[in-house]
Every structure is written in C-alpha cells, then in structure tokens.
Design a protein around this nucleic acid. Structure first.
Lengths: 200, 200
DNA sequence: GTCTATACCGGGATAGAC
DNA sequence: GTCTATCCCGGTATAGAC
C-alpha cells in the first residue's frame, strides 16, 4: 500500500471530469459532448481525460450513469406509491425537457448500445431491467390495495419506459411536443384502468 | 423535350434501386445498408446509385418512404374503426419484429434526422404528423360513438407512436422483448378508458 | 499512476487547378 | 463542373516527463 493516495486522487479526478462533462453538456448541448471540449472544461488535456476513461464511449456511458444516480433519488424508494412514482417520474422528465443535450446524448447512446459489442450495451440492459423492475413493483403494490389481474405490472413498466424514450426522441425532432403532458396523460390512463372494476 | 425517355428510365432505375435496397436490408440486416452493397445488389456501381440519390442519407430516406407506402395500405383508410386500426397497426409491428435491419435503419435515421439540417428532418416531421393525425381521427370517431371528453385523441396518437418507437429501440437492445404483446396491452388499456363511463 | 506532447487516421469542408 | 490538394477537427495510439 502507500498507493492509497493515488487511488483517491484518481477517483476524485474521474468524478470531477464526469461532473464537468454533465454540466457542459447541459449548458452547451450535445455538440459539447466531445473529449476535447470536456477536457478543456475540466482543465486537462484530451489525453489526460482518456487516461481515466480509455475511450469516448466509456466516458459518455459513465456520464449517463452519473446522471441516473442524480435523478434516481426520487423513484428509488421501494415503499413509494403509484402517485409518488408518477410525481418523481414526471419531475425527471420535466427537467430533461430543459436539457436537450443530455436527452440527445442518452438517445444516441441508446441506439449505439444496441450493438452487443458496444461498451454501453450491458449498462443499458441492466438499466432498463432495474428501472422496469422498480416500476413494476410499485404497480404491483398498487394492485394489492385494490384488485389484481387486470393488467400485468411488467407490461405497464415496459410501456411507460418505451413511451418515455419514444417521446424524448420525438421531442428532439420537434421541441413543440409536450413530453410531460403526454406522460401525465399516460399515467392518468393507467390509473383509470388500475383503479377500475376488477376484470372478470 | 426529347428527354422524356430519360426521365422515365431514371424513374424506373430509382424505383428498382429502392426496392432492391429494401429487400437487401430485410434479408441481410442493417450492415447491408451501405451504398456499396445496395449498388452491387441492384447491378450498378456505387457512383451509379449516388447519381440517382446524391447522398447515402437521401437514399436511405427514400427507402424508408417506400417502406411506409407499402405498410400504409392498412391504416390509411379514413373510415377505419379503432379495431381496424389496431389490427393494421399490430400487423405492421409484427412484421417489423422479423426484420431487425429495417427497424435499426428506421431508428438510427430517426435520431440522426433530429438535426434540423439533416435531409430526412422534414420527412420525419411530416411522417409523424400525418400518421398521428390519422390515428387521432380514428380515435376521435370512436369517441363520437360513445362519449367524448375523456381523453384527447391527439394525446392518444402521440403516446401510441412514441411507445412504438421506444419499443422498437428497446427491442433492438433486447430481442426478447415482445413488442406486439406490449402494444396489444396498450390498445387494451386505451379501449378500457375510451369505452369507460363518461368523465364528469 | 497521472498526465502531456505528438503524431496518426478518417471524415468533412474549402479552395484552387484544370 | 470535376478532380485534387490542403486543412481542420474529433478520436485514438504511443512515448515519455513527473
């Protein structure tokens, strides 16, 4: 040992780079998601940044991971109600609607990561599974309080996530789209079905 | 004048190239969506293909436009019922679930075309508006028969389109996903709400 | 282990030669 | 109008300073 200091420094550097990248992309848009620009903003050279993350793709994957961590505060709660979930979810989407750069980064990486060989492939697979499971659990619990069997929680979770991604893509194409309103409508529809009379 | 024959020939060539491209992508996947491969399959040189379409992006945009034409037979009918729409819609998605190459092309272009300067930007803007309007009209008509005011048709159309795009993206990431089942569930939920008691 | 300098590669834009 | 030369830029690989 005696290397402890180095590890700590490296960790701090990585974190500092990621937070800088996050901010730069938020304020300057997706165009700022270049290694050069991020390095410049973080106060070191391009090579310096790459020393910590190896490739651009890995760096950006970590940026997304950090963003998720910061966003997650809301719907990580396993005891949340459906209303809590909706509120937390809409809050995140509403915030996203002000940072096209980050949404674009997320969407582009989502598509790239479709390739099983892409460094972010596993990240997205896990991410979708994790968030989906948490949503499904909340829906499941909601059903306990009323009546079961009407709708499969997994299907609701999948639809909610897919609709969100699709809306973000569409919003990038046409910023006039009101993502929050559309998702609020979807929640309202879910509510109507989940709270409706039990299926026979 | 005197060039009439050329125009006709050029039109025929364009069409033949597009149909070849469609088939090649369907059978060989997204990797086959290269100008070289398409040219080869269509029996002319790369330059020959580009002579008719200028850039790869414009060529691929036209491929998507042709695919839409071929798919549209189903839900172009302005007198269709909600059930008809659902059947036609699910048929298209079900077919897509067998041709990852075309879905990948569509998804990738969707994201690229997000840029207002992209040659396919207007195409996608118009496409989404057109299909959305048609869906909304069908929903609207469905509401006439029962009760209005419960849900805005435009919101339903937007959600359906967004969910479809999101599901396709997710399916590319994880082919285990059953897109058709998920969309069938969404239709079922829409039905439940639209057929429910009028809102007060 | 952290970081810089430099050079390389590929794509896209630009400009000038023909 | 085309073809080529050149340059810039972003990402990557290597050598070496500290």
């Amino acid at each position: 040992m005696g290397k402890r200091g180095s590890y700590a420094k490296s960790e701090a550097r990585r974190d500092s780079i990621l937070r800088t990248a996050l901010e730069v992309i938020d304020t300057e848009g997706y165009a700022a998601a270049s290694v050069t620009r991020i390095a410049e903003a973080a106060g070191l050279s391009k090579t310096g940044v790459l020393h910590h993350f190896e490739t651009k793709e890995k760096l950006l994957t970590e940026v997304l991971r950090l963003r998720d961590e910061l966003d997650e505060s809301g719907f990580a709660d396993p005891t949340a109600s459906l209303g809590d979930l909706e509120a937390a979810y809409l809050k995140v989407v509403e915030r996203n609607a002000r940072i096209p750069g980050m949404v674009e980064l997320f969407t582009r990486l989502s598509v790239e990561a479709t390739d099983p060989d892409h460094p972010a492939h596993d990240f997205f697979l896990r991410r979708e599974a994790d968030i989906g499971r948490r949503i499904a659990e909340t829906v499941e619990r909601h059903l306990d309080e009323r009546h079961r069997g009407a709708v499969e929680p997994d299907a609701v979770a999948l639809l909610l996530l897919a609709a969100t991604d699709g809306l973000q893509m569409r919003w990038l194409l046409d910023p006039e789209i009101d993502m929050t309103a559309a998702l609020a409508t979807l929640f309202r529809i879910f509510d109507a079905v989940l709270d409706g009379p039990p299926q026979d």
